[in-house]
């Protein structure tokens, strides 16, 4: 996970589970920025991300009793966040965003490595985030779960409701979409500044 790395505030978690408002506040301060950033990456607008962050923490507070202290708190937190955001996106997009699980639809071409390197190098975080915004919800969510939340393939499969064997395909397809968006942005920039 991205927020992890540092030690989890076990005392605050236990206190919050026991209903201590101060401990809950401490826990919130610890994780709210990371969860907001997660929502910001996964959802289309800032307003959506704000609402979702609030709703996720409300959910978390209601479900704290279900949390098993033997497991990673941040992993559990991201799982709740992922489920919430994905539900939101799925509800909004409805059936329009139905993507096939047919792996044969994916072009498994060997890209030109040097061309790929050129596309990646010199890219700023802002450019990548803009490109991410243009991706289909599932592609974006898959990338966020993997490269922001550092979720395992099993966890991603569970969150997105796809087969585990299909996660790699989803991720690779998402990368292709991202490259395409980055390429278009470059072309547009080049056209604007001849």
């Amino acid at each position: 996970m991205s927020a992890p790395g540092k030690t989890e505030p076990a005392e605050a978690i236990a206190g919050a589970q026991a209903g201590n408002a101060e401990a809950w506040g401490e826990l919130y301060q610890e994780y709210a920025p990371a969860i907001f950033r997660f929502c910001r990456r996964a959802l289309p607008t800032r307003e959506d991300a704000e609402d979702a962050t609030m709703e996720i923490f409300l959910k978390i507070r209601g479900k704290l009793g279900q949390y098993d202290p033997g497991r990673s708190f941040s992993a559990w937190l991201y799982k709740v966040a992922a489920n919430h955001c994905w539900d939101l996106l799925r509800r909004r997009k409805g059936r329009q965003d139905k993507e096939t699980e047919d792996a044969s639809a994916l072009p498994l071409e060997h890209p030109d490595p040097s061309q790929l390197e050129r596309l990646i190098e010199q890219r700023t975080g802002q450019e990548v985030r803009r490109a991410l915004d243009q991706l289909a919800p599932r592609a974006r969510m898959a990338l966020v779960l993997r490269y922001y939340s550092d979720m395992s393939y099993d966890e991603i499969a569970d969150a997105l409701g796809v087969r585990r064997a299909f996660v790699g395909v989803v991720l690779l397809r998402a990368r292709h979409e991202l490259r395409q968006a980055l390429g278009q942005a470059s072309a547009a920039a080049a056209g604007g500044n001849p």
């Binding site: 991205s2 907001f36 800032r46 700023t124 802002q126 991410l132 490269y147």
Partner: peptide, 17 residues
């Protein structure tokens, strides 16, 4: 790109729900 802290936490989210 994703972990970059580009936006501060909005004011309405500063306090815990």
């Amino acid at each position: 790109s994703m972990v970059e802290d580009d936006e501060p936490l909005p004011a309405r989210l500063v306090a815990a729900p």
